[in-house]
Design a protein around this nucleic acid. Sequence first.
RNA 1: GGGAGCAUAGCUCAGUUGGUUCAGAGCAUCUCGUUUACACCGAGAGGGUCCGCGGUUCGAGCCCGUGUGCUCCCA
Length: 869
Amino acid sequence: MELSKNFIPGAVETKWYQHWIDQGYFHSVPNDKPAYTVVIPPPNVTGVLHMGHCLNNTIQDILVRRARMQGMNPCWVPGTDHASIATEAKVVAMLRERGIAKSSLSREEFLSYAWEWKEKYGGIILQQLRKMGCSLDWERTSFTMDPDYYETVIKVFIDLYKKGKIYRGKRMINWDVKAKTALSDEEVIHKEVNGKMYHIKYKLDLPGDEYITIATVRPETIFGDTAICVHPKDPRYTHLVGKHAFVPMINRRIPIIADDYIEIEFGTGALKVTPAHDINDFQLGQKHGLEVIDTMNDDGTMNDAAPMYLGKDRIEVRKIIAADLEAAGNLVKIEDYVNQVGFSERTDAIVEPRLSLQWWVDMKQLAAPALEKVMSDEIHFHPAKFKNVYRHWMENIKDWCISRQLWWGHRIPAWYDKEGNVYVEASLEKVYTTYPETVGKELYQDADCLDTWFSSWLWPIEVFKGMSNPNNAEINYYYPTSTLVTAPEIIFFWVARMIMAGEEYMGKIPFKDVYFTGIVRDKQGRKMSKSLGNSPDLLGLIDQYGADAVRFGIMIASPAGNDLLFDESTLEQGRNFNSKLWNATKLLKMWEPRQSKEGVVPEDAAFAMDWFQAKLSATQLEVDEMLKTFRLSEALKTIYGLIWDDYCSWYLEWIKPGFEQPIHATVFEKSIEFYDALLQLLHPFMPFITEEIHHTLKTQTEDLCVKELAPISKVDESVLHAGVLLKNVISTLRDARNKNQIKPKDTIELHIQSDNNTAYQRIQNILAKQINAKSIAFTNTAIGSSIVVALEKDKFYLVADQAIDTASLKENLLKDLAHQKGFLESVEKKLANEKFVQNAKPEVIAIEQKKKADALARIQTIEESLAQL
RNA sequence: GGGAGCAUAGCUCAGUUGGUUCAGAGCAUCUCGUUUACACCGAGAGGGUCCGCGGUUCGAGCCCGUGUGCUCCCA
């Protein structure tokens, strides 16, 4: 069979993915084997695959595929999140394009558009995961708004309400004026913004023309001012406390109060207090019993508290108010000022603090066990540094605002009567049953939805129907899940809350290990984002390089828990690795028809096979350990080196038969076997090409995808060491050839002077081949007119046809000699140090003594070589 | 303002409880080379005051203190 010149990924990938699906390899049912369960962090239902997903899902696939090959029963559950605010925003935008305003639709009409949208775009991201080769159990695809899931979310709300852990309260919340909804603290992104500090003077309610000057970055909020506050010990203002001032432009009279919350040094030392629009002002207002005047509508425009700006956006007002204040004679000055401003994660609108009646979860009790499980390492965080971050948050946890003023999501199961009484139940019928006093009353349901995370925190439970069908066989088998792979940015949003839900509703942790991936950044270290346009098109990259190369590229640059700087050159490296694998296959296939069964295996090939077996086993052990400790990037690097350097560059060259010579059948078989073992080791990282080559090498009885790893054979340390020596000799002699400008085609004669000839006898054919020597001889004496190379205690004489550059040879030897002598000196100094000899461990001293002996021997060798020149 | 983390070769990172020939890898760089697997390649080489300063120790990239620079989270 003639193999194509290069490996072409496209068709191969489609073929094998379909085959794996047809064979049902990714579908799991409970059985006798140990379960290895992973639930996907559900991407937004309308999302498209980006680099973050690529990294995250590649890692999960590696873990799952590895588990499959280790004979476990892996189950990787796919699914999507309804992502209430993001999806609703998209639907609203889509409707706007069609000329439909959300406000013109009923809730039911809007939701039918939303479902239509979900059906149309909802599957895209899951299709894209198939392209990447993800071995997900598609029969288990879940959605956070599936009927059972929906009911479970409602059930949890009611349960927590009845336990007194959910309450309704008027609090300062973060208001997204674009989406017209409350946001949790975690959904607000703080950014530094260049703004202005306005100094504004308020006329005092005193005889004469006296003023007090305040400083603010938000002059448009003055209409909500209900006090001015100063520090009680500020000598500038003590005489004014208890007096009153007038808000500019509207001339509303407000008191001047004192509180040590004020920083004397900041601004003018006098603070305008606006309880409706600032969290700190709100607290101050509560303490001093101040009035709360809301000056804004829910879309961020000014209301009738600011009659002259009615209907204008607050940001717009900030720009024009300075001129009006100036005209009114109240503006003192404007300074440049940098401050932190909160933006909505979803809509990028500037978040407004706003007083509002919302639903809250009391977090204190839920947090305690969840903190303990992580601190005690019952749940392992990788890397462990995130334990600190987690602890800090959990110890300072605040109540969770769970209501969102949206329609797309799980509608809050609360009904109100005209008097404002609240009845929480799953349906109106149930309300009438549970609360007989409501019978005959007209009730209306809360219009709001629950925060998306209020459904996702049940994900590892409800994908197995652990709550809608408690104690079923699946939840008992698959839960707790094994490993969660996610981004550190959602450690509080999601990870912490899943642990709480697990403890509360299953009485068990939801997962044993959490692997935090880094954030994918561009070459310059910037976070990838749509607005920067630095997020590459993943499917385009897969088309260009192949899925295996993309997986390779993203994993090789991805240290655990550190951000990864994405650079397309690693994808090239991945594609080159594909080529290397393919070319090695071509070489093996070339030898296939030229096998000979005659005679015994040549001694050098026997050595090569022994060596590679030892190297393979040793590396398999290393990789095993690395994967156990989630050092995936290192494992991939190790496998890459084993294949490229040890197998291709060394082993295949060592066993390579001469020009048009046959290869011994035993050697050929063994080489195929080795290669297959390498493919198996690599398979979790690069599933497509490894499966393809596995079947190209020979007729296989099973697919690599489900082939169980064989036990690792014992490592023969001595042959491993012999291999190191051989590689060392080859490199050193090649270097000597290079330095003496011996052309690659020119042969040399090699004479070896050693105490241990037998060590070289077994490998001399390999050595001859690798350094292009026409003969190898052993000698007890120096060989004249040769290039002398010293390695450890042995000497090598290279006899070439061309003239030898004795001067440079001598120079090199002298350099080496000086180096060795310096080294010897430092070792001797150490050994002469009494304190060292007294304190150091015996094995450390033994090592130093060996160093000394070796250095002495080496100096002798070099001196002898010099004498011969 | 509070908290967490990072600083090792041009770049991205390893470096296990302080102790092997005097700090490793991949990529990049340089030199040589198209001999039938592979130029998406082969052979070889160069490159580091382990951020500064101080301390503990016989011995520090690793431990302690301190300074500087950067990143992230929270207010």
